[in-house]
Amino acid sequence: MDRKQIVFDYLGRYALRYDYYEHPAAPTIELARLYWRDDGSKHCKNLFFRNHKGDRHYLVVFDCDRNLAIRDLERRLRQGKLSFASEQRMERYLGLRPGSVSPFGLINDTENHVHLFLDRNLRQQHSLSFHPNDNTGTIVIPQAEFIRYLDGCGNSYEFIDLY
């Protein structure tokens, strides 16, 4: 099934409100900026990590206008040494490919293996923007609806100070 359609079906099943628009493939923030609409949402950067042993996985979501150094992130998350998870791990745990990572990948994590860290500053945003598990579109979802989505997924998550 189409990765986007899985997201749309999930959001529809739980009557979550969102807006959607399509654009050319945008696997990086730099490319995505070319297609973003001026809709007032905060566009997010989404990074997928694993711990040193490879038995824990983390999705880290933060403001796309900010940068994070892995060593700083390790200190803030207190999960030990981190590295970017491989493409195979990304597919296994989130059902995603590089360039399309988003919290909507948690739909595919039926065992709730991945822990989600979100920057606390995102809580102040009216709405957030993410790829719908495919980098040829953008979903804009109101903050309250996004929290409902996270609560429904069942994965553990927390808002923390990332910078």
Rank of each mutant, 00 (worst) to 15 (best):
V61L: 08
F62Q: 09
D63I: 10
Y58A: 10
R50E: 15
Y58G: 00
D39C: 03
H43G: 15
R37N: 10
C64T: 11
G54L: 06
K45D: 09
G54K: 04
R66W: 00
N51G: 12
K53W: 06
R56G: 00
D38C: 02
R50W: 04
K42D: 03
D38H: 13
G54E: 07
L59H: 04
L47M: 14
F49G: 07
D63L: 10
K53Q: 14
V61M: 10
D65N: 15
D65S: 13
K42W: 06
R37F: 01
W36L: 15
D55N: 15
H57L: 09
H43E: 11
D39H: 08
F49S: 01
K53V: 11
F49R: 06
Y58H: 12
N51Y: 07
K45E: 05
G54D: 09
L59A: 05
F48W: 03
D63V: 12
Y58I: 00
G40A: 10
F48I: 00
N51H: 10
N51I: 05
H43D: 00
C64Y: 10
H43V: 02
K45G: 03
G40M: 06
N67K: 14
D63T: 11
H43R: 12
D65A: 12
G54F: 07
W36F: 14
V61H: 09
K42G: 05
H52M: 08
L59D: 07
K45W: 05
H43C: 02
R37H: 14
H52T: 05
F49P: 04
R50T: 13
R56P: 00
D39I: 05
N51S: 11
C44D: 00
K53E: 14
N51P: 04
G40H: 07
K45L: 06
V60N: 03
H57C: 03
K45F: 03
V61Q: 06
F62L: 14
N51F: 03
Y58Q: 11
G40K: 10
D38N: 15
R50I: 04
H43T: 09
D65I: 01
N51Q: 09
F62I: 13
C44H: 04
D55Q: 07
N46K: 03
Y58M: 11
V61K: 05
F62M: 14
R66H: 12
G40F: 03
L47I: 12
H52E: 14
W36H: 12
H57W: 14
Y58D: 11
H52C: 07
G40I: 09
R37P: 02
G40C: 05
H52I: 12
L47V: 13
V61I: 15
D63S: 12
R50L: 02
F48P: 04
L47K: 04
V61Y: 01
R56F: 03
F49I: 08
C44N: 10
K42S: 12
S41F: 03
V61N: 10
L47T: 03
D63C: 09
V61R: 08
N46S: 06
C64G: 11
D63N: 14
R37C: 05
Y58P: 09
D38F: 01
K53G: 02
C44G: 00
F49Q: 02
D38P: 08
F62H: 12
C64V: 11
R37S: 01
